[in-house]
């Protein structure tokens, strides 16, 4: 999977960055190491305008209807959704756990906020992920610098505002370094 940049079409509304949609699904019945995780990850579309985004997104299965152990990632062009990528190595992510049935609305609000540059943290945001699991769904937003508390606080506050989360929603921040050590995303 190599990243190739795209241009906004004539008359379309450009985005601040190029983004890629990635999809990954864990094969049933076995644990994944880092290389097999990467191998199961596919770029399914690249976009640099609002219209290009909708053309891809409108053809995707809604997050509420995804099954199995699957993830959809939207990352800036050139950044792989992997802890080890150089943009992510010193970063981390906010994690929001959602009861079943809520994820499609929250996921759409999260990516619209990211594409529309609502987080106001410069180049800090790397991408966003929706993770479909057996008992709950999880959305997360990744940023470059886990130790920049002003940045991570601003991301959390924006996340709360744009997701309009139910009361008692649990949010947690996890550094990718911690994830690398315990080999677990959540």
């Amino acid at each position: 999977c190599t990243f190739e940049d795209v241009e906004p079409g004539a008359g379309e509304h450009p985005l601040q960055y190029t983004y890629c949609f990635w999809y990954s699904k864990k094969p049933p019945g076995r644990n994944q190491d880092a290389s097999s995780f990467e191998k199961n990850m596919k770029i399914i579309g690249t976009f640099r305008s609002v219209e290009q985004f909708w053309r891809i997104y409108s053809h995707m299965i809604r997050a509420n209807d995804l099954t199995g152990h699957s993830d959809v990632h939207v990352f800036k062009g050139g950044i792989k959704p992997l802890w080890e990528d150089k943009a992510n190595r010193l970063g981390g992510k906010w994690i929001v756990r959602l009861r079943k049935g809520l994820v499609a609305r929250c996921w759409e609000n999260l990516i619209l906020a990211m594409l529309g540059e609502q987080f106001m943290v410069g180049d800090e945001v790397c991408g966003a992920v929706v993770s479909i699991r057996f008992q709950e769904d999880i959305i997360s937003i990744w940023n470059r610098s886990a130790n920049e508390s002003q940045v991570t606080s601003r991301i959390r506050d924006t996340l709360c505002r744009v997701l309009n989360l139910p009361p008692n929603t649990v949010m947690e921040y996890k550094t990718h370094n911690e994830s690398l050590k315990d080999r677990s995303s959540f």
């Binding site: 079409g9 008359g11 379309e12 509304h13 450009p14 985005l15 601040q16 609002v50 219209e51 909708w54 053309r55 409108s58 609000n109 619209l112 906020a113 594409l115 529309g116 540059e117 609502q118 744009v162």
Partner: peptide, 21 residues
């Protein structure tokens, strides 16, 4: 530099444009 900012309602409005389909 200048950043390209869009709010949610503008992005949703673009969805119904013929170019987005």
């Amino acid at each position: 530099g200048t950043r390209i900012i869009y709010d949610r309602s503008f992005l949703l409005k673009c969805r119904s444009s013929p170019m987005a389909n």
